[in-house]
Design a protein around this nucleic acid. Structure first.
Lengths: 168, 168
DNA sequence: AGATATTGTTGTCAATGACAACATGTTCTC
DNA sequence: GAGAACATGTTGTCATTGACAACAATATCT
């Protein structure tokens, strides 16, 4: 494969160019990443996109995106809390969360009742239907996580998780 | 407004509630992440967003977003290659790359000349101006990477990079 | 030669992030 | 206790992004 090894016939890299041709189209086009190799963000993003893609596919039957999942999980684990609390915890913008909750309410998974102690805020709860659905969703999410572990290697995943978690 | 709340004195946390009050608003609202703690994707995304935010801020003077940066670096390191090659390497959709290149061409950083050996594809090159700008941009990108290292800890960053890089 | 595939392009749609403005309610300060 | 300052949820708007379909031009395969 090395350009300097003239393997007799197979004159693929006969000239300086050495472009792959014909059959080897799809795979053999890899370029030099150059300084991208030194950027954590680059690889971080690639992996994150791949993982989210798997998540979305795995949960396609419920049409739940990662952000929605995180909101559902947070409401389930912290019932009665306000949108502001969820928003701050997940770094989701207030405006966006409001719209997302409209959708989750439309699906009858989430209930908003006005908080007892603060007339401005809403207490968020899962409806019984929401709880039931979330249980199924969590099973799929667990399956996704298993697939992710296969994809990146179980121990690498564990190491990554340990490293990443030290933020918040 | 609350019907059940006796209008008397500071009745705020008189019961089991124990909500944070007054001053401690901003910080003390942290909720239980529950099963999110088991999802690499969740933490991966949080860190990625934080890092990209820093990148964008650090390179704000040049108005270069991460994707644009990666394209510029790849063209510089692999001059003459086609859009398809860049697209595949960076997992950027063909359509999106085409539009991005229009913008980079408008800024006079990138030149597209039709490839000699394939009438369909374009050979991508940096213009002299583009090379000059990219040199400055790379300095800012290096500064960003340094900031990221401070942010997440130099060794954690190194470990992360090592782990993440084993994909591609 | 004719079927098939690739390349670059444009159009469109949905999701997202960012930000401003607003009404309503709460907390702070005096 | 009144008024300033702030918090909360909402809507509106804009820019960016990802996904997908369609297309013309060109290359490649059989």
């Amino acid at each position: 494969m090395t350009p300097s090894s003239t393997r007799g016939l197979k004159r693929r890299a006969a000239f300086g160019e050495g472009r792959p041709r014909g059959k080897n189209r799809a795979a053999r086009d890899k370029l030099d990443l150059a300084e991208l190799n030194g950027h954590v963000g680059y690889f971080l993003r690639r992996l994150q996109v791949a993982i989210f893609k798997d998540f979305i596919e795995t949960l396609a039957d419920f049409d739940v995106r990662p952000a929605q999942y995180s909101v559902l999980v947070l409401i389930a684990a912290n019932p009665g809390r306000s949108q502001a609390a969820i928003s701050k915890t997940l770094n989701i913008e207030r405006a966006r969360l409001a719209r997302m909750l409209h959708e989750l309410e439309r699906r009858q998974w989430v209930e908003r009742r006005s908080a007892a102690n603060d007339g401005r805020s809403h207490s968020l709860l899962l409806t019984p239907a929401g709880q039931k659905v979330l249980a199924q969703i969590k099973r799929l999410a667990a399956r996704h996580e298993k697939q992710a572990a296969e994809m990146i290697g179980a121990e690498r995943r564990a190491q990554l998780l340990a490293l990443l978690r030290e933020f918040g």
